[in-house]
Design a protein around this nucleic acid. Structure first.
Lengths: 156, 156
DNA sequence: TTAAAAACGGACGGATTTGGTCCGGTTTCA
DNA sequence: TGAAACCGGACCAAATCCGTCCGTTTTTAA
């Protein structure tokens, strides 16, 4: 099972939620409540997404976050990249984020890159709008999560 | 960065290595030495791959492992599946391995499945033979890893 | 002008996962 | 019969994850 960060999972959920009300300013408090993701976590999430330019922050009272672009123009690939760095199936972990300093020893890498590009293409073709579902479908009990339920999303 | 298990990384390296000598019986000791992956780890790896049927074990003296099929007929997708379970970009973590028991709340899942299938297709089209490189390309110093070097493979 | 609302940034720490080790057992060959 | 090799599972240290908790800054509205 190729794991996605849980944070990334949340991000897709929360962003999709924002996409249902494209132009409104959403506070983290509201987003947290609606998605059942803990507030400080949503906050941390949004900060990262803002830095990546996927959402725009508006500070001060009556502030919050707005999608920088329509949901239909934000791909899942972008969300993943924003939170986890470049999309790549890799186990390269020690330093060397974008460049392998023993690349000569690492001839397999070129082959992986081919695979990675294929995966990126697949992810780039799915937008947040594609992932959006109506609230009625999302939640059995509108406005109230089932007691003891886990945060919404793709979590089982 | 979508992480692959490091074990899976090793597996691709080791299996590719076996592919260069398709019919020989490879001992874990030899594979470990050639790949610079610690022996007990190679051992653990091979056990899992054997269970999945990708390699066949031969016990007893002069035993070892053999590829069950030619390298050109083993896809990277199969290796991943053998070690990490079904290929899926997912954060579903709590129990519920193959079936989400709150699937009704989890409407997004269907959309993810579409993505997952695309990724699986990409991975299924790359075989171990595609990943194989000649030993000369793999190692600058044949038979000897650079001192302090990390295990070979795609590790940086 | 002041108070409240909201984002910002970063440090911290507990729980989980990972991956590496070890060891006694079993099978096969010479 | 002994050595070589796989088998299987318990175990533990290290790394990672993710959620929390500060104090700070910015903006709006009373």
């Amino acid at each position: 099972m190729i794991r996605l960060n849980r944070l990334t999972d949340y991000a897709v959920v929360v962003l999709s939620q924002m996409g249902r009300d494209q132009d409104r300013v959403h506070t983290t408090a509201r987003l947290a409540e609606d998605s059942a993701v803990p507030l400080p976590t949503v906050s941390k999430l949004m900060k990262q997404l803002a830095r990546a330019g996927l959402v725009t922050s508006r500070r001060g009272a009556a502030g919050g976050y707005v999608l920088s672009r329509p949901a239909a123009q934000i791909s899942v690939a972008e969300v993943i990249t924003a939170l986890e760095g470049p999309i790549a199936l890799t186990a390269c972990v020690d330093g060397a984020v974008d460049h392998c300093d023993v690349e000569a020893l690492c001839a397999m890498r070129g082959n992986w890159n081919k695979v990675n590009r294929a995966i990126e293409t697949a992810l780039a073709s799915v937008t947040l709008a594609d992932m959006t579902v109506s609230p009625a479908e999302m939640f059995a009990l509108p406005g109230r999560r089932p007691p003891g339920g886990k945060p919404a999303g793709m979590l089982s």
